Simulated scan of single mutants.
Amino acid sequence: MPAPGRRARPAFVLALALGWATPAAAQVPAPPADKRVPMEPTAWPFTAIGRVNVVQGPAHRSHCTGTLVGPRHVLTAAHCLFDVRLDSWVKPHQIHFVAGQARDLNTGTAEVEAFRLAPGIDLRAAARPAHGSIAPAMIGRDWVILTLRQPLGVRPVPWRVLPNADLPGSRPGAVVALAGYAADRPFLPVIHRGCAARIDAPAAGLLSDLCESMSGESGAPVLLLDADGGAALVGIHTAVTGGTRVGSAYRSASGVGVAAGSFAGALDEMVRK
């Protein structure tokens, strides 16, 4: 889920049965020792990961994590762009991407001129089963591709479709990592290197991970890092499961998201055309 900015209203709280944090989840025991560590994003692919800043109004700001997947395209979670107060999507001019942010430094910034939502996604109150939840059919549609006003001089991260993969087990020598801008370190990325992910689980087009994460990391890339220095995005993390409440945020050692197979066709059309 997005990390709220100062005085921002909390974003949706999504049903635990669907793999999202809920107020009830705050009653579960705290997760084990945090395996996330802060990092300086000076090397690829981390130079291409950044903050997606969303301004809903003067006192309503939030951020998520996004990944540059093309010179002018950023992939993140769709729910980050939904304004619950207005029950509608924000406008492109309300979104700004900062790549490789490390405190007051970054590897590039750009305004957003347009975005492409997953086909059929509907997060309006009328489409949600209860206030603050999301319909099951929307989980695999929780992705959006942002088009930046100008290209960034940063090497993008490629995506890889790995149907039914159990990672890293099915890729000997590879390492799974989740990196993003969490609520507890909003201006410096954190990474859990050496976690695990299952593709097309619990259903086709979805992803489940055993990675430490926190609010603010919605949209963060689930990365497959090869021993030779290669990297690919195999999906995006969109919410924690079994979350423990920490202030206005949630933290967990497991999460759910969208597998690359769900958005690869749109990326092929927009980035590789």
Rank of each mutant, 00 (worst) to 15 (best):
H96F: 08
G255D: 04
L224W: 03
A15Y: 00
L117F: 02
P2N: 12
G140M: 07
A227N: 07
L167W: 14
V234M: 08
T244A: 11
G229S: 06
I95T: 08
R141P: 01
F115Q: 01
V37C: 02
V28G: 09
I236P: 05
I121R: 13
R124D: 15
S62A: 13
L233W: 00
Q56P: 04
P45W: 05
L188I: 10
E217V: 12
R198E: 01
L223A: 01
R193A: 11
H192T: 11
P202S: 05
T244D: 01
C211Q: 05
L68K: 15
T238P: 11
R116L: 10
M138Q: 15
G242M: 09
P158D: 15
G153R: 06
A99P: 00
P156A: 09
V258F: 00
V55P: 02
M214S: 08
Q27L: 14
A204T: 11
P2I: 14
M214Y: 07
G265F: 11
G216D: 02
G261W: 06
P92D: 08
G257R: 00
T65A: 13
K35I: 01
G70N: 07
I121N: 01
A203S: 08
R155K: 14
F97V: 02
G132A: 01
T65Q: 08
R7N: 15
P163F: 01
P31I: 02
P58V: 04
G205K: 00
V69G: 08
A165S: 07
R155Q: 12
A239T: 03
A110Y: 02
Q27C: 06
H63K: 06
T109F: 00
P119M: 03
A232I: 01
W159I: 15
V98R: 00
A232P: 04
V240R: 03
H79T: 06
L18D: 13
A253T: 05
V175A: 09
W89M: 13
G255K: 15
T42I: 14
H60V: 09
Q94K: 04
H131A: 09
A59T: 14
P4H: 00
C80V: 06
P71Q: 07
Q27P: 01
P23S: 06
P58F: 07
V258L: 00
T147M: 04
L75P: 00
Y250L: 12
D200A: 10
G261V: 06
L178F: 03
V154P: 12
D184R: 15
G132I: 09
T241V: 13
E217N: 13
G19K: 00
A197N: 11
R7G: 09
L68V: 08
S208T: 15
S133V: 14
G140T: 13
P136C: 05
G108A: 13
V144Y: 05
V144W: 09
M214D: 10
P45F: 01
H237R: 09
L210Y: 11
N53F: 07
A249F: 05
V246R: 12
R116H: 12
A182F: 04
A110F: 02
G230E: 10
L18M: 10
D83Y: 14
M214I: 10
S62F: 12
E269Y: 07
Y181E: 04
S62D: 02
R149S: 12
H60T: 13
T238I: 13
M1L: 09
P186Q: 01
P38W: 09
S170K: 14
T67S: 15
G229E: 07
T241P: 08
Q56K: 07
G50R: 00
R61E: 12
S133Q: 11
S170T: 15
V176Q: 07
P186T: 02
A30C: 02
V176E: 05
F12L: 14
